[in-house]
Simulated assay, not measured.
Amino acid sequence: MEQIFPAELEELLSEGKELTVVDVREADEVAQGKIPSAVHIPLGLLEFRMHELDKNNHYVIVCRSGGRSARATQLLESYGYQVKNLNGGMAAWEGKTE
């Protein structure tokens, strides 16, 4: 499983790189702040909603601390998606939130 560090993700987003952040936390967690432009798909629904994701795109998966996003990353990888897990999750994120 590939990892990406928060500072690296922040740099890629500021450069306008083509990637999508998928936040797999629960709605109450996302309400406290998420990475701007992140798509919210709770981990429990990911298997049923992964058809909304394009296998040609690159994704970074995020949760609170990295555990749930690691499971989501492994699931999506097993279906052929290009994904990286955000190391440390939102707990390590120091960039902008919305």
Rank of each mutant, 00 (worst) to 15 (best):
L75V: 07
T20G: 08
G80L: 06
K55E: 05
K34G: 13
V30S: 02
L75M: 12
E26C: 08
R25K: 07
E98P: 10
E47S: 13
V21Q: 04
L9K: 05
G80N: 04
E47I: 14
L19R: 06
L75K: 08
N57T: 11
M50C: 13
V60P: 00
E11V: 10
K34W: 07
R64T: 10
E11R: 12
G44P: 02
Q82W: 05
M90A: 06
A70I: 03
C63R: 00
S78E: 06
A31G: 07
E10Y: 09
W93D: 01
L53D: 00
A91L: 13
D23A: 08
A7G: 12
M1I: 12
P36Y: 06
G80W: 04
G95H: 03
Y79I: 08
Q82E: 11
E8K: 14
R68E: 05
G88S: 05
T97C: 13
S69V: 03
M90D: 00
G44S: 04
T20V: 13
E98W: 09
A27V: 15
M1L: 12
E98K: 15
E26H: 08
A27S: 11
G95P: 00
F5A: 15
R49Q: 10
Q74I: 14
L86P: 02
K34H: 14
S78D: 05
L76H: 04
D23E: 07
L86I: 06
R71E: 12
A92M: 09
T20P: 06
H40P: 02
E8N: 11
K84P: 01
N85L: 02
D28E: 11
I4N: 02
S78T: 06
S37T: 15
I61S: 01
I35S: 01
E8I: 11
A7C: 12
E8P: 06
E98S: 13
G80R: 07
E52R: 13
I61L: 13
A7Y: 09
K96S: 14
A31E: 10
Q74K: 14
I41P: 01
K55V: 09
G33N: 06
N57W: 10
Q32H: 07
T97G: 09
Q74A: 15
R71C: 09
G33K: 05
E29I: 08
Q82L: 14
S14G: 12
G67V: 14
G88R: 02
A38C: 06
T73R: 04
D23Y: 02
E29W: 05
Y79M: 10
G66I: 08
I4M: 08
A91W: 09
E11K: 15
E2S: 14
G33P: 01
G33R: 04
G16W: 04
E94A: 14
V21L: 08
N85Q: 04
L76F: 00
G95Y: 03
G66F: 05
F48E: 13
Q32C: 10
T20W: 09
D23V: 05
G95Q: 03
L46W: 00
V24R: 01
G89L: 02
E8W: 04
T20Q: 15
C63D: 00
I41T: 01
E8R: 09
A7W: 09
T73Q: 05
Y59C: 02
A92L: 11
E52H: 09
E15N: 15
E10C: 11
D28S: 12
E94Q: 15
M90W: 01
I4H: 03
P6I: 08
N56H: 11
V62T: 03
A7I: 11
A31V: 03
E10K: 15
